[in-house]
């Protein structure tokens, strides 16, 4: 089950991005684009992600996956179609020519929601230096 490897790769990259940003205290959610033809099962990925996030900056983060449907275009007759699953990558209209894949192989981290900035200090309590 390589969904665990994929989940770990997502976590690594988000942690790196958080480190670059400097002051991230928690990650709330991660938005992922998963193409129909990416060879990844979103449910299995969510399960692995939850397990793998434990003890990291991403603990408790939600994984929001957007499935990207596969789309193809025939170079010969310019017909465009949804490839479906299992995918049909030969042109359904002219039965020939060359096909271009327009979408469906995505496996991308679109973005994240995270908490940053200094943790808001409790307003009324004096901080140690002032005592």
């Amino acid at each position: 089950m390589h969904e665990m490897s994929i989940a770990l790769a997502v976590i690594d990259q988000v942690e790196e991005a958080a480190e670059r940003a400097g002051d991230v205290t928690a990650v709330r959610s991660v938005r992922l684009q998963v193409g129909e033809l990416a060879g990844v099962v979103p449910d299995a990925l969510s399960f692995s992600f939850e397990l793998a996030c434990a003890g990291t900056l991403l603990e408790g983060a939600a994984l929001v996956t957007e499935t990207v449907p596969g789309r193809a275009r025939c170079e010969t007759c310019a017909h465009e179609w949804a490839v479906g699953m299992p995918p049909r990558l030969t042109c359904p209209r002219c039965e020939g020519g060359t096909t271009d894949l327009l979408a469906g192989r995505e496996l991308r981290i679109a973005g994240v929601d995270w908490e940053d900035g200094p943790a808001p200090a409790p307003t009324r309590e004096p901080i140690s230096e002032e005592r």
């Binding site: 994929i6 990259q13 988000v14 994240v112």
Partner: peptide, 16 residues
């Protein structure tokens, strides 16, 4: 504060 950040990175970028 909560911030929405675009990363737009391939998950398998490191392997690739």
């Amino acid at each position: 504060m909560c911030r929405t950040v675009d990363l737009n990175q391939a998950v398998l970028a490191r392997n690739d």
